[in-house]
């Protein structure tokens, strides 16, 4: 068990984003975090990443609280672009190399080329599609233990999606885990191990994807439509 959440709660002044989430993640598995905007999946990821502090509940990474040690091994990719404006694609690589021991420069270069980005491109001039690809390249070039990708297919054109899914699969190793959230459930359906359906800040359905399909007699996409209709 690489990650354990118990009764995790995050309250803001005007809303409760996470309302008692219990969730465990095992090594070597890909989890889909499913739910519409505002359901709490992004907040959950940010709490695990250490960017948001929970109101109550416990969260441990390999038995320890979130902190410097977990940040060394957790690679989080947010939905929004977050690179410094003054940086070039190459600078982003250097930054990651400076701070993350698990960053693989060769793989970064390979991914940049695959995504058809240029090392000298400035982050602020990138179109939203290319910026999204840069985020993925930087995050997946790390050999992390836990990857958290928030909407990795957002802003990616249909043709490039297959490339992205392949890149994600390449990083899905036996010793790593992935949390992927996406609206595009059908693109993810085949590659996930487990599905976690989040609604209004709590988990409403959870389990092995194949078992869920079998026991409910429908695909994950259809389950999604049912739950959130």
């Amino acid at each position: 068990m690489i990650l354990q959440c118990n009764d995790l709660v995050k309250k803001y002044i005007n809303k409760t984003a996470v309302n008692g989430i219990n969730f465990d993640a095992e090594k070597g598995k890909i989890y889909a975090l499913l739910g519409p905007n505002g359901s709490g999946k992004t907040t959950l990821m940010k709490i695990i990443a250490g960017l948001v502090k929970p109101t109550s509940g416990t969260l441990t990474y390999k038995g320890n609280p979130i902190g410097v040690e977990s940040k060394k091994r957790v690679a989080y990719m947010s939905t929004e672009p977050f690179f410094y404006n003054f940086m070039s694609v190459e600078d982003v690589g250097k930054y990651y190399k400076d701070f993350f021991e698990d960053f693989d420069v060769k793989r970064y270069e390979e991914l940049i080329e695959r995504m058809e980005l240029g090392m000298k491109d400035k982050t602020k001039t990138l179109s939203s599609g290319l910026a999204a690809k840069l985020k993925i390249a930087a995050t997946l070039a790390r050999k992390a233990e836990l990857y958290m990708l928030d909407e990795p297919l957002n802003g990616i054109d249909i043709i490039a999606r297959e490339k992205i899914i392949n890149t994600i699969l390449e990083s899905a190793r036996e010793d790593s885990s992935m949390l992927i959230s996406s609206h595009l459930v059908d693109e993810l359906e085949k590659i996930i191990d487990n599905a976690v359906f989040i609604k209004n800040g709590s988990v409403v359905l959870y389990g092995d994807a194949e078992e869920l399909r079998a026991s409910h007699g429908k695909s994950i996409v259809e389950l999604y439509k049912e739950i959130y209709a």
């Binding site: 297959e162 699969l169 590659i191």
Partner: peptide, 14 residues
């Protein structure tokens, strides 16, 4: 196993 996963775009455990 991994090549199979890539070929069919499925989960490596599958």
């Amino acid at each position: 196993g991994r090549e199979l996963a890539f070929k069919y775009k499925i989960n490596p455990n599958t």
